[in-house]
Design a protein around this nucleic acid. Structure first.
Length: 445
RNA sequence: GGGGACGUAGUUCAGUUGGUUAGAACGCCGCCCUGUCACGGCGGAGGUCGCGGGUUCGAGUCCCGUCGUCCCCGCCA
């Protein structure tokens, strides 16, 4: 039986047609008489029905069906009875009454459910990768990657870029990251190094006059992992000659817009806003800020130039800064002492020695540190931050880099904690004028 | 290189102060069920508590070691 449609392709326009589907048994709902099976393939799910009144023999055989068996089924597309539509399915208006089927393969019970939102360890999922990849979410991810790559290739080709491959097995050209090494059989004791990026090659291509190059390419960096960081990853790599910053920015905005349009069917507004690196560090503490919510950092160093509070005084004296995050009363969040202690532990990860705080209450400022503040300092702080009862002020005071790092990450943690981030919202921004060089911690001084 | 969390049924987890037969949910198996889509009802099976050692009358629980997993800092652009 050769398939005529994908499972997701059927709708009211197919009613009455005899069709054949191939797919996997997702779920089975056996009512003794009637039996429903959700048949799944890469495009989606379709409900098929086994009815003893159509063919008792077929219905009897269908009773043995289990999860993940692979089937070829033949039947007629029918409108579902009144009130039985399932709006959650693209095929929810119809079902297929099965007259004949073939078991292409049986299956053991899978070690985890083949469905989205499972709560199974990465370890187990990787052990049964072929099952994990059957899950709709992963299939959607793969399909998304496909669309992104197609959109990228089309867009860059249309804009005069040539797709050119570059070698993986080459000599080490030290960049920042450690190289992955491959023993060279023909040269005992020597090794190839896998590229951290096609840096050298694309420059070679520019010198050679290819003018515009791109490649969707694997890069390899032998560094320690993180949840969002893999040792090998794919990069959209490109290089041009004869173009300036504005040209590149315009080109990339067009690319991102095209990708979102083709892959997600979402229309982005371009040009994207821009901020400088310096502004990003000042307002958000990070060079890749999440600008979907507020809680921006504010510097208050100047208020405490002559303070009696030693921690602040030392920070300013050592050319550091004092910055704050104000969590406004309007957010209606009362932080417990335990939560403040936890936040303090959190900023310590980034090298901060502590985190001072003030709870602004109707008649007093509750805080371990305000007793060190002069009336002038309190007034200046109150004016600068436009303090109101119910506000919470969190302080970082240290070297600039530590304060930015600690409060920048604290801000993003608070944003998540307070539910201020709409994960669906896209918010692009260019951060421009990055410093060309930065001091190594050990080399400054 | 450093810090933290965790390892109990197929899966996700609970397990009190160290104390009788280690529990739940989902999944699985059997029977029943003709409109379900998280189907429902009744019944059932399923455990080397990661591994090794120690303390103890007694260890899932305490101690030491070991293996493994996850997260973070450093590192990585």
């Amino acid at each position: 039986m050769k398939k005529t449609h994908h499972c997701n392709a059927l709708n009211a326009t197919h009613i009455g047609q005899e069709i054949i589907l191939n797919g996997w048994v997702a779920t089975r709902r056996d009512h003794g008489g009637l039996m429903f099976v959700d048949l799944r393939d890469r495009e989606g799910i379709c409900q098929i029905v086994f009815n003893p009144e159509i063919d008792p023999k077929v219905h009897d055989l269908a009773k043995d069906l289990r999860s993940e068996w692979v089937l070829a089924v033949k039947g007629r597309v029918e409108k579902r009875p009144e009130g039985m539509n399932n709006p959650k399915l693209a095929t929810g208006e119809i079902e297929v009454k099965i007259s004949e089927f073939e078991i292409l393969n049986t299956s053991k019970t899978p070690p985890f459910a083949i469905e989205d939102n499972i709560d199974t360890s990465e370890d187990l999922r990787l052990k049964y990768r072929y099952l994990d990849l059957r899950r709709p979410a992963l299939q959607k991810n793969m399909i998304l990657r496909h669309r992104v790559m197609q959109a990228t290739r089309n867009y860059l080709s249309e804009n005069g870029f040539l797709e050119i491959e570059t070698p993986f097995l080459t000599k080490s050209t030290p960049e920042g990251a450690r190289d992955y090494l491959v023993p060279a059989r023909l040269y005992p004791g020597k090794f190839y190094a896998l590229p951290q990026s096609p840096q050298l090659f694309k420059q070679l291509l520019m010198v050679a006059g290819f003018e515009k190059y791109f490649q969707i390419v694997k890069c390899f960096r032998d560094e320690d992992l993180r949840a969002d960081r893999q040792p090998e990853f794919t990069q959209i790599d490109l290089e041009t000659s004869f173009l300036g910053q504005e040209d590149i920015i315009g080109l990339m905005e067009g690319l991102v817009k095209k990708i979102w349009q083709n892959a997600k069917n979402e229309t982005l507004n371009i040009p994207f806003p821009r901020i400088s690196y310096a502004e990003s560090m000042a307002r958000f503490g990070l060079d890749a800020p999440d600008m979907r919510f507020g809680l921006e950092l504010q510097e208050v160093s100047d208020i405490f130039t002559h303070t009696q509070f030693k921690v602040f005084k030392d920070a300013v004296a050592n050319k550091g800064v004092i910055k704050v995050i104000k969590i406004p009363a309007a957010l209606k969040k009362d932080f417990s002492r335990k939560e403040l202690d936890d936040l303090t532990e959190f900023v310590k990860i980034y090298g901060a020695k502590g985190m001072a705080w003030i709870k602004i209450q109707e008649n007093e400022w509750q805080s371990p540190i305000v007793k060190f503040f002069s009336e002038d300092e309190k007034k200046a702080l109150s004016d600068r931050l436009q303090i109101q009862a119910g506000d919470l002020i969190l302080f970082g005071a240290d070297k600039t880099q530590i304060v930015n790092d600690a409060l920048g990450n604290l801000r993003e943690k608070l944003g998540a904690m307070l539910g201020l981030i709409d994960s669906k919202q896209m918010n692009f921004v260019w951060v421009v004028d990055f410093p060309m060089f930065a001091y190594d911690d050990k080399e400054r001084d």
